[in-house]
């Protein structure tokens, strides 16, 4: 038996030796064609893990990100679920043919939203589950126990599903990747081409556990 680990790196190495599949999974990703996200996630949204995108300001591009993910997954013919916390998704902002792969779950309360996310996290048919919690207040969101997030993580970690949580403040304790959308679009941007807006999406990585895992591996 090896002695007690002297550092977190040793502990990680020990874990990777004993449970290789748990870390090997982090290599798989759902390509998003969104530079900010693909770069941070090592090729896309990590599968079997939670990614959190925090919209720090109004009109910072969270919905644009959803649109891009819907477009990419539609082209890949992969199924997507959107758990819409306050029922704010606007189908008319999208091409009708681009939504054929979408399961839209229109919630009204936080309880409904979290329960629906839990149900969908257990479904093996979905490549991506988007959980949109924007619109709930900070105190409401803080009432979600941390165990709920770990439960969601446990539900998807053995699957090929990526779980994207959209919030207005850092919230998800079990997220392996957290991106902050810190910019704000201007009225003139309504005339810009969507691919240009996606390319210029102002985002910064606030947490990247994938990087740590890769380093320790």
């Amino acid at each position: 038996m090896p002695g007690p680990p002297q550092s977190i790196d040793v502990l990680r190495r020990l874990l990777s030796e004993r449970f290789p599949p748990a870390l090997a999974r982090s290599a798989a990703a759902l390509r998003t064609e969104t530079p900010a996200l693909d770069e941070a996630g090592g090729g896309g949204l990590p599968l079997g893990a939670i990614t959190e995108v925090v919209s720090l300001r109004p009109s910072s591009g969270g919905q644009l990100l959803i649109l891009k993910l819907l477009t990419v997954t539609r082209r890949q013919r992969r199924r997507v679920a959107l758990v819409d916390g306050i029922d704010a998704f606007d189908p008319r902002s999208h091409e009708p043919a681009g939504l054929e792969h979408l399961l839209w779950v229109r919630c009204h309360t936080l309880d409904e939203t979290m329960q629906a996310a839990d149900i969908l996290a257990h479904d093996a048919n979905l490549a991506l589950v988007m959980l949109d919690l924007r619109g709930f207040t900070g105190p409401e969101l803080r009432r979600v126990p941390a165990s709920t997030w770990y439960r969601l993580q446990r539900a998807i970690e053995r699957s090929d599903t990526a779980l994207l949580v959209l919030t207005t403040q850092p919230l998800v304790s079990s997220a392996v990747l957290r991106l902050n959308l810190h910019g704000a679009f201007a009225l003139a941007d309504l005339d810009a081409l969507q691919p240009d807006l996606i390319r210029a999406l102002p985002a910064e990585v606030q947490r990247n556990r994938l990087l740590l895992e890769r380093r320790s591996a």
Binding site: G62, I86, F89, D90, R92, S93, D189, D191, L193
Partner: peptide, 14 residues
């Protein structure tokens, strides 16, 4: 479509 769409999608309040 030959030309990509313009602008930002709407987040609708219901």
């Amino acid at each position: 479509a030959p030309l990509p769409a313009l602008g930002l999608p709407l987040r609708r309040f219901r």
